Simulated assay, not measured.
Amino acid sequence: MTSALPPLREVIAKHGLSASKALGQNFLFDEHLLDRIAAIPGDIKGRNVLEIGPGPGGLTRALLRAGANVTAIERDARCLPALAEVSDAFPGQLKVVEGDAMEIDPASLFDTPYDVVANLPYNIGTALFIGWLSGQEWPPQWRSLTLMFQQEVAQRIVAEPGSSAYGRLAVLSQWRAQARLAMKVHRSAFTPPPKVMSAIVHVTPADMPEGVSARMLERVTEAAFGQRRKMLRQSLKSLPGAVDGLEALGIDPQRRAETLSIDEFVMIARHLSP
């Protein structure tokens, strides 16, 4: 079926496409690499997959070859004709939604659970990721997240306490989900090559600790890491009851945020949750 599709480089030349820096675009052409990315979430044959920013459709093709039913959100109208050709080659498997992923609720696109697989635009990737991890309802509607980030961001997502990369993103990613670094991708794999290396993170939901408000945990981590060089007794002063709570929980208020385990952050958030 894919024989009906020309190579991506020909598609880009045909449609006069070039990666938009303003949209954070970097295109991948290597089909072997794209197939490896599509395999990270496991067998997706017959499953619903959400893709953000498909561009000319390189990763889209790989997901479709793997048998997924793909809904792709693309705001760059220049790419729509190329994606229409992909849709024609895989009848009934691809739905393209023109719009801004920051403004579209995935719940409005799916009636059943879905996986997210995306080479995220660098300029909105972290914001989208935090959005998928936030919210009190858990487990979420998504089954897994397989996402390309700048390698520095990916390392922050999977970081362990005490490491220089450990911060708010690690806590939000790991307190009720499992996150792993699935693959590193060299900058030379992209057109145009970005200035930094990239990596793919795979995240699956885990059990949510009881009695914790997700919003409160966000507030605690935001305050603690917003002044990460300061002791907790200073950084958490903006949260009523937080400093007194440290004493009650047996957490030394002279410690700094990066020394706290995820369980300790959960304890503080639980103590402050209504």
Score class of each variant (00 low, 15 high):
residue 4 A to F: 12
residue 6 P to E: 15
residue 7 P to S: 13
residue 7 P to Y: 12
residue 7 P to K: 12
residue 8 L to D: 11
residue 12 I to A: 11
residue 12 I to G: 00
residue 13 A to G: 08
residue 16 G to Y: 04
residue 18 S to I: 07
residue 21 K to F: 02
residue 23 L to Q: 02
residue 25 Q to E: 06
residue 26 N to F: 00
residue 28 L to E: 01
residue 30 D to T: 10
residue 32 H to Y: 13
residue 34 L to R: 01
residue 36 R to Q: 15
residue 38 A to Y: 03
residue 45 K to A: 15
residue 47 R to T: 09
residue 48 N to T: 06
residue 52 I to W: 00
residue 53 G to M: 00
residue 54 P to L: 12
residue 57 G to V: 11
residue 58 G to C: 12
residue 59 L to S: 13
residue 66 A to R: 07
residue 71 T to C: 08
residue 74 E to M: 02
residue 78 R to W: 06
residue 78 R to C: 09
residue 81 P to C: 13
residue 82 A to V: 14
residue 82 A to L: 13
residue 82 A to H: 11
residue 82 A to M: 15
residue 84 A to H: 15
residue 86 V to L: 12
residue 87 S to M: 12
residue 87 S to Y: 09
residue 88 D to K: 15
residue 90 F to I: 12
residue 90 F to K: 10
residue 92 G to R: 09
residue 96 V to N: 01
residue 96 V to T: 15
residue 104 I to P: 05
residue 106 P to G: 08
residue 107 A to M: 12
residue 107 A to P: 00
residue 107 A to W: 07
residue 107 A to I: 05
residue 108 S to L: 05
residue 108 S to M: 03
residue 109 L to S: 06
residue 111 D to E: 14
residue 111 D to T: 14
residue 113 P to S: 05
residue 114 Y to F: 15
residue 114 Y to T: 02
residue 118 A to T: 07
residue 120 L to G: 02
residue 123 N to S: 10
residue 124 I to V: 14
residue 125 G to N: 00
residue 126 T to C: 03
residue 127 A to S: 11
residue 128 L to T: 01
residue 128 L to W: 06
residue 128 L to H: 02
residue 130 I to S: 11
residue 131 G to D: 01
residue 134 S to F: 05
residue 135 G to H: 08
residue 135 G to T: 03
residue 136 Q to A: 10
residue 136 Q to H: 07
residue 136 Q to M: 03
residue 138 W to Q: 03
residue 139 P to V: 08
residue 141 Q to G: 05
residue 143 R to W: 10
residue 143 R to N: 15
residue 148 M to Y: 03
residue 151 Q to F: 01
residue 151 Q to V: 06
residue 152 E to V: 05
residue 155 Q to Y: 01
residue 156 R to L: 04
residue 158 V to C: 01
residue 159 A to H: 02
residue 160 E to T: 04
residue 162 G to C: 06
residue 167 G to H: 10
residue 168 R to T: 05
residue 177 A to W: 10
residue 180 R to S: 12
residue 181 L to E: 05
residue 186 H to Q: 13
residue 186 H to C: 10
residue 187 R to Q: 11
residue 188 S to G: 07
residue 190 F to R: 06
residue 191 T to S: 11
residue 191 T to Q: 09
residue 191 T to C: 09
residue 195 K to G: 11
residue 196 V to F: 02
residue 197 M to T: 13
residue 197 M to Q: 15
residue 200 I to C: 00
residue 201 V to A: 01
residue 203 V to Y: 09
residue 204 T to W: 08
residue 207 D to E: 14
residue 211 G to V: 00
residue 213 S to G: 10
residue 214 A to D: 07
residue 214 A to T: 12
residue 214 A to G: 11
residue 215 R to W: 01
residue 218 E to F: 08
residue 218 E to G: 09
residue 219 R to I: 06
residue 220 V to Y: 07
residue 220 V to P: 00
residue 221 T to S: 07
residue 222 E to C: 03
residue 222 E to S: 12
residue 223 A to F: 05
residue 224 A to Q: 04
residue 225 F to R: 06
residue 226 G to V: 03
residue 228 R to Q: 06
residue 231 M to C: 09
residue 231 M to F: 08
residue 231 M to I: 04
residue 232 L to K: 08
residue 233 R to D: 01
residue 238 S to A: 15
residue 243 V to Y: 08
residue 243 V to A: 04
residue 244 D to W: 02
residue 245 G to I: 03
residue 250 G to Q: 00
residue 250 G to N: 06
residue 254 Q to N: 15
residue 259 T to R: 14
residue 260 L to T: 00
residue 263 D to F: 08
residue 266 V to S: 07
residue 267 M to P: 10
residue 267 M to L: 12
residue 271 H to S: 12
residue 272 L to E: 02
residue 272 L to K: 04
